[in-house]
Design a protein around this nucleic acid. Sequence first.
DNA 1: AATAATTAGTACAAAGATGCTACTAACCAA
DNA 2: TTGGTTAGTAGCATCTTTGTACTAATTATT
Lengths: 214, 214
Amino acid sequence: MTDNTPHQKISVAIDVLIFTVEDDTLKIVLVKRNEKPFKDLYALPGVALRESETLEEAAERSVGERTGLKNIFLEQLYTFGAIDRDPRNRTVSVAYYALTDPEKLIAVHNADGVSLVPVNEVLAGISPLAFDHREMIDYGRKRLCGKVSYSGIAFEFVPEEFTLPQLQRVYEILLGEKLYKANFRKMISPLVEETGNMLTGQAHRPSKLYRRKG
Amino acid sequence: MTDNTPHQKISVAIDVLIFTVEDDTLKIVLVKRNEKPFKDLYALPGVALRESETLEEAAERSVGERTGLKNIFLEQLYTFGAIDRDPRNRTVSVAYYALTDPEKLIAVHNADGVSLVPVNEVLAGISPLAFDHREMIDYGRKRLCGKVSYSGIAFEFVPEEFTLPQLQRVYEILLGEKLYKANFRKMISPLVEETGNMLTGQAHRPSKLYRRKG
DNA sequence: AATAATTAGTACAAAGATGCTACTAACCAA
DNA sequence: TTGGTTAGTAGCATCTTTGTACTAATTATT
């Protein structure tokens, strides 16, 4: 028989890794904690799961409370369950990751304790993070970078209309290597279509604007 | 601030998808429930998470209780949190998947309510499963098949010493397509080494035995 | 003892993807 | 008008994948 009988209740948290690419850098949204434990340390935006909401709804709520964003790309990442990951009591945290174009985060940056921080700096570990959130970010970045080549997640980091050099830079940042223009275009062209518009004002030849196809 | 404060406690279950490949078929371990809810229906082996154990420890316990197996391949799959997935009370289930060579499951099959069932039959949906376990299996099979090509999981389904045709069949079953011998061998050869032994008694040319390298 | 059946394993050509170089195109700045 | 800069394309070389065809080694059959 399957023993799903609830013998012991445990707190369930939802933490969200909100990633974006800005200034050719992968960045993540962190918030400064203003209560114990880990007061004044940075942490991922998170909420306690309510009885009346699904995991995904809680993740959306967590994103919305901190950034005001709705309907952004959101996927479950991993569930962390180390016994003492929360010093208060046993808490399992279901981590999600969200991806967004940085323009949608402009209003958010520096608004009451919310920061957009380069992931490399966070992982370099100059300043500590609350809970096991550094571990989460480390895991999340690996998953993100691993998925770039075979999924369309890179599109989530650019606006609806984008240029191919822009999109290529996102791929390069996530993959951590330089790509050849010609090959990149051959690979990506079945997935995009021209909008007919151009991006001008760039002190060099203007580039065509594209949108995602399908 | 991050609201990880535990306002409401929720039951946490661990369910495990124990996959194997037998008779050229992907199969999964199911157990017959002998209590409500879903009495007499098949379900995944599962346990309630205890305060004193990690998620992975609970998954190992779940595998061990049903099959007696220890130290088998185990990875977290996904966390399911639909509001009414358990009719008794709000329960979040962290699903894991385990992979094993079918020989290790021989003693288990048909022992007190434990069955080894073809995944295709389960998903075809002739008989209902407890909870959202069919959904879990559907998700798990997709993930498993998606990972075959870029990870070494296929090795988990064969004994320590195996022939390349054997391993190739595992790949073919999971990928759902026929592979070319020559290409398969080129792809797999950096990952394996000959043991020096041969598998004879097969009414045709004997095959070399290999083991996983590294 | 020969031969048929069957699967193991290898060789190699064809097609396609990727790596890489070099060029032309179109804008802004001076 | 010239130079700087990035957009975009052409095309060859190389590596990888696709696919076919062959030889090899065993057991089963006559």
